[in-house]
Simulated scan of single mutants.
Amino acid sequence: MLTLKNDYLTAQINPLGAEPTSIKDNETGLEYLWQADAKYWGRHAPILFPIVGRLQDNEYRVADKTYKMTQHGFARDREFTTTEQSADRVVLRLTADTESRLLYPADFSLTMTYELVDHQLKVNATVTNPADTGLDFSFGAHPGFNIPFGDATADFTDYVVTVAPKQTYQRIPLVGPYSDSEHSLPIDLSRPMGLTHDLFEHDAQILTLTNPETTVMLSTAADDHGVALTTTAPYLGIWSPYPKQAPFVCLEPWWGLADDVKATGDLATKVAINHLEAHQDFNASYQITCF
């Protein structure tokens, strides 16, 4: 486990999956990240690559050849190499190998950078295409946050999600595990979204983000603690497992979506896919502010 520390926070990053496993307040010891109780969900904040969500029949095609890949891709279960480390910053990298090419026939490099700056954990992902041909992929993050935070007596339903800018967004419904982008519906987020477990009866709430930057805050009037996630991602998933009534919620910046209900299986035409030309880089970032 890799430990980052500054004057305010201590974070731990697991090289397996380059996954953050803890963000603690140094003064109070308050833990912000979900601690992977397998009774509810056995992960903390996995990386989603090279797909977000689920493929139809867990299959896709590249150049008329069919490949199998399970939900959210394989990066979350692969060992990353630590390439740089200091007291408050670490860089980890995953590159294509024989094992990955059985699932995903592409050369790639995925570099994850984590840095503590004051009360923030800053996260940057860089996807590099080292090949002479194009690269199709999705990327996302899946951090879970404790509800309540610390020893607070607040209930799940005492928490709200506030989205800034405050406006009406488009919400993409899911049909089973698949996106139904054609039937997006407006959702008024000029006021905070109250949390209930029933909100997730049909899986994640998925928002289309059209602003240059969006901040999503998880907080309660019952105490002063919460988190804010700021990102440039085009989509945001809000999720808690239903009907388990789990004591956490995930705020998930996504650069990609699950297969559409009308997906053809061709990776190049997959909904919300990212395409990198030869020898180009793609950057994705988000920041978690703890208070």
Rank of each mutant, 00 (worst) to 15 (best):
M1R: 08
K5C: 10
N6V: 09
N6R: 06
L9H: 03
Q12W: 00
N14Q: 10
G17N: 06
E19I: 03
P20Y: 00
T21D: 02
T21F: 03
E27Y: 12
Y32N: 04
Y32G: 02
W34K: 06
A36E: 05
A38W: 10
H44R: 07
P46C: 06
L48F: 07
F49L: 04
V52Y: 02
Q56L: 12
N58G: 10
K65H: 14
K65V: 13
K65C: 12
K68S: 15
K68E: 14
K68A: 14
Q71A: 14
H72G: 03
G73L: 01
R76D: 09
T82I: 09
T82R: 08
A87T: 13
R89F: 01
L92P: 00
L94M: 01
Y104H: 05
A106L: 11
S109I: 10
V117D: 10
D118E: 15
V123G: 01
T126L: 12
N129C: 07
F137L: 06
G144R: 01
F149D: 02
F149V: 06
D151C: 10
A154W: 10
D155K: 15
Y159H: 05
A164T: 15
A164S: 15
Q167M: 11
Q170L: 14
Q170P: 09
I172C: 05
L174T: 12
P177L: 07
Y178T: 05
S179K: 02
D180P: 05
S181R: 13
E182S: 15
S184C: 12
D188F: 06
R191I: 13
P192Q: 04
P192D: 06
G194D: 09
D198H: 12
E201W: 13
E201V: 11
L207Y: 04
T215G: 09
T215L: 08
V216G: 07
T220K: 03
A221K: 14
D223E: 09
D223K: 05
H225G: 00
L229F: 07
T231Y: 05
T232G: 15
A233F: 08
P234I: 07
P234M: 04
I238C: 04
S240L: 01
K244L: 12
K244M: 09
C250L: 06
P253D: 05
W255D: 04
D259Q: 04
D260Y: 03
N274C: 09
H275I: 07
H279M: 07
D281P: 06
Q287S: 12
